[in-house]
C-alpha cells in the first residue's frame, strides 16, 4: 500500500527520530510512504478564526498534492494531523473558506476536501492490523509498563478529528499491547500538557506536566509514549519530581520490530 506522507517541519529537525523510525517501520511492514514534494509547514496551530484564509493555504497545498496523486495522506505529528484534518474539513464543508482558498490558489482542479487524512497509528491499524503487527514483533517488550500520552490535538474536537473516543481512547493502548508490553491506563492521558504556553509561561506548563506525570506514575507507568514533539519536549523539560521518561511511538515500534 502506498500513501502520501507529510512529515512537517519539526520531524525534519528536532523530532528526527519520530520521522526516521516511522519510515523505517513502515517500510519493514510493506507500506510505502511517499513524501509530499516541496511541502510547507502547516503552521502548527489550526486557525480557529473563520476569517483567516492565508494561514490555511499551506495545508490546502499539501492536501491537494495528495489528491492529485490519488493517495490518502499520512501524518505523524499530532499537531500537523490536527491542522491538516481540520483544514480539510473546512475545504469540504465550509463554502466561504473553500471559495476563498480556491480563488487564491487557482488550482487546475479546485479542491473540496477530497483527500483522506489519517494518522500513522490509524494507518497501522487499517493497513496492517494490530493482531498482524503483534505477529511481526521480533523483540516483544515483555514486562515494560508503558503509558500512552494522547494529549489534546489528536483527539479533540472528536466530531472533527474522528480519531478515537475522546474521553476513553484505546488505540495507543492497543498498539502498546501489540508490541508485547503492558499498557498502563491513567486518568490524565487525554488532558493537556500546556504545550502552547511553554514558550511564554513555563510555570503554567510545569503545573500541567506535574499533574500528568503524577497520574502516570501513580498508576504504575514506567515510561510514556507520544506522537507529538511538543508534548515530548514539554513533558521532559517541565517535569518535576515524578518525571517518567517519554519517547515517540515510532521509537517503541522500531524497538519491537528489531529495527532500533
Amino acid at each position: 500500500m502506498t500513501y502520501s506522507y507529510y512529515p512537517g517541519c519539526t520531524l525534519k529537525t528536532k523530532a528526527k527520530d519520530l520521522d526516521h523510525y516511522g519510515r523505517l517501520c513502515a517500510e519493514a511492514l510493506g507500506i510505502t510512504l511517499e513524501e509530499i514534494e516541496e511541502w510547507q509547514c502547516c503552521g502548527a496551530v489550526y486557525p480557529l478564526a473563520q476569517d483567516e484564509i492565508a494561514t490555511r493555504l499551506s495545508s490546502v497545498r499539501t492536501l491537494m498534492a495528495a489528491r492529485d496523486k490519488g493517495q490518502a495522506l499520512v501524518t505523524l505529528c499530532s499537531a500537523c494531523h490536527h491542522v491538516l484534518t481540520r483544514v480539510n474539513n473546512d475545504m469540504a464543508g465550509n463554502d466561504n473558506i473553500r471559495t476563498k482558498a480556491n480563488n487564491y490558489l487557482q488550482p487546475a482542479v479546485p479542491y473540496a476536501g477530497e483527500t483522506r487524512v489519517l494518522h500513522y497509528l490509524q494507518m497501522l491499524k487499517e493497513c496492517v492490523g494490530f493482531d498482524e503487527l503483534a505477529k511481526k514483533v521480533v523483540n516483544p517488550l515483555k514486562g515494560r509498563k508503558i503509558g500512552a500520552y494522547y494529549g489534546c490535538m489528536i483527539l479533540r474536537p472528536a466530531k472533527e478529528m474522528a480519531f478515537d473516543d475522546p474521553e476513553n481512547p484505546t488505540i495507543i493502548e492497543e498498539f502498546i499491547k501489540a508490541l508485547g508490553a503492558e499498557a498502563v491506563v491513567y486518568p490524565m492521558r487525554n488532558e493537556c500538557c500546556g504545550g502552547y504556553v511553554t514558550v511564554k509561561d513555563a510555570d503554567l506548563a510545569k503545573k500541567r506536566v506535574a499533574k500528568i506525570m503524577h497520574s502516570a506514575k501513580d498508576k504504575g507507568a514506567e515510561e510514556l509514549i507520544t506522537a507529538c514533539p511538543l508534548c515530548l519536549y514539554n513533558l521532559q523539560a517541565n517535569a518535576g519530581a515524578d518525571a517518567v521518561p517519554v519517547t515517540y511511538i515510532t521509537e517503541l515500534l522500531a524497538e519491537a520490530l528489531g529495527l532500533k
Binding site: 519539526t10 509547514c41 502548527a44 511538543l230
Partner: peptide, 19 residues
Amino acid sequence: AIVDDQIPQQALVSAFRKY
C-alpha cells in the same frame, strides 16, 4: 532567551501564530 537545544520548531511556530 527562550530557545534551548531541545525546543521543537513547532513550539516557536505555534507561539508566533498565537501571540
